[in-house]
Amino acid sequence: MGRYLFRRLLQVPIVLLILVTISFFLMRAAPGGPFDMDKQVDADIKRRMEEKYHLDKHPVVQYGMFLRDLAPIHVFDREGNVSIRPGFDLGPSFKNKSLSVNEVIWLKAPVSALLGIAALLISLVLGLGAGVVAGVRQNSVFDYGSMAVAMVGLAVPTFVVGPLLALVFGLWWKLLPVAGYAADGGFFGGLMAPQYLILPAFALALPFAARIARLTRAGMLEVINQDYIRTAWAKGLREHVIVVRHALRGAMLPVVSFLGPAVAQILTGSLVVEQIFAIPGIGREFVTSAMNRDYTMVMGTVILFGVLLVAFNLIVDVVYGLLDPRIRYT
């Protein structure tokens, strides 16, 4: 486990570097730049802008400067004097000139985080709940019913579930708002006004709930036929004790390994969900910055997504190790 984790940790910087490098050069390799689209900018101003943001330099030089700013700690300032400042500087946003990329991320990431956490919780609760009951009561009405729903949930992607939920609950029944976000914004503002989050969180969660339900059910079926479950029955334990204490852990292992890829998919899913429900989160920011050629903003969001992803995969590995004592020492 330790050695394995160490290998995974070594992977992290490589993965992030590859991601950053590809994104960086993808953005710059295409013809045109961020200041081409504003028609009113005349050639002179455009040149000055490009100079200000170092866009006149060779891409490789720009890349070097970008990486330098990105370093966790800055030891030297631009003149080469020693001056220690915190790093992780993603630079100014090209389009949103009053804010730096870091500021935009601080503003919008909490909104997405709230949405993502809500979706993850919903999918875990629904998926584990339905999966366990379906597995324990195999071939029951509940089993068939929930698995049929899960089948549909699997095939219907977020960007279909989202509009359909909006149609039924927002437009037809008028129960919930179909767009927007809490007026005070941020993480806690969103928490205080959950009505804006219910539909998007469910839209994001349902495909995962379906996957988790199926994985849990399959895991449960496998586990409850194990000898040690028979042992537990023979001890005279009650069914819910057997399910919760003896069976659930083993049944959850496939779910835990699925959570790594699931988080990646929730991140991509947030791109569409935030667009569908007009939520001012980081996913929508990524899409608009990409379309606007806002280089620094794109890089910032890509790095954020990359870090989240590798971090979550590591967490999943650790959790897996904690759940399964057998792999602790291997």
């Binding site: 000898d227 040690y228 028979r230 023979a234 001890k235 005279g236 003896h246 004592p325």
Partner: peptide, 25 residues
Amino acid sequence: ELRQIRGGKISMIFQDPMTSLNPFL
């Protein structure tokens, strides 16, 4: 009533000790 007897009055040992104990507990 059956649960009180299982493991309490009548106990059982199974064939394969490798799989009869819960590996997670």
